[in-house]
Design a binder for these strands. Structure first.
Lengths: 128, 128
DNA sequence: AACGGATGTTAGATTTTCTGACATGATTTT
DNA sequence: AAAATCATGTCAGAAAATCTAACATCCGTT
């Protein structure tokens, strides 16, 4: 529980997140606009990122490099973060959607995404 | 070594350090002026703090509350940090190199750290 | 009472970040 | 091939965060 607090506490300004992820501010803001992340804001409206946010960004970056597009990543997250809500199905991907995702995958000869999503996402290794 | 990198990497703006330590900006700047800490600076001259810096501030706060004054704390540190191995941080690493190093480590599933820090600041309250 | 140490407060300058708009190269769709 | 879409670059103007420097204040000591 305390752990969750630690990793979700917003402590990093965008400049540092840029360094940590090698993403531009433009990219980070775009991913937020596309609902892939939801960084906190200061009273003055500045974005402030948690360790979890950085993990997510690294994962997003990874997916993009493997050929997925933002929409696909969003779908992944939507279906992944459903286990909470056991109402009906975790919103299954339509055939068309799935085909689109898979086509992207094959094009870039990427591994199945079950792997990538597990590899990254542990920035806490940076810190003690 | 990597552990040292993690804890010395400047990632926190003063506003966050204020929250983490319950110190005012004035206090933090004063302690720097008095050579108790040496936070990094951005290109634009903004202070950027490491986890070690925060630990140090918590320790300083503790000492002050116990009745020591700044001069006394400085003396303490001067005699404590005499040990020869204090050139452990090769100042030759560029920021880019550091970041790349850290990212590499992350990809390769770095193992947990072991080394105990000399300081006993309780930042670990916040981070794993 | 005067002094020095630690902190508060304020002002003006500079840096950082923000949003919004438009530009661009690469694909995909029509 | 033209048009549309995606992800990102870039720029401008505004607002927020931070900086230094100076002066003020509170509180123990001398």
């Amino acid at each position: 529980m305390t752990n969750r607090v630690r990793r979700t506490m917003p402590i990093l300004p965008i400049s540092i997140v840029m360094q940590l992820t090698d993403l531009t501010a433009r990219q980070i803001r775009y991913y937020e606009e596309q609902k892939l992340i939801s960084p906190a804001r200061t009273e003055g409206n500045k974005r402030m990122f948690s360790l979890n946010d950085v993990d997510a960004l690294l994962e997003i970056k990874d997916y993009l490099e493997q050929g997925l597009n933002v929409a696909g990543i969003r779908k992944l997250y939507e279906s992944k973060e459903m286990p909470q809500n056991d109402q009906a199905e975790p919103k299954t991907l339509s055939d068309a959607e799935l085909r689109s995702l898979l086509r992207e995958e094959m094009k870039h000869q990427a591994r199945p995404f079950s792997q990538a999503s597990q590899r990254h996402g542990d920035l806490s290794r940076f810190f003690k």
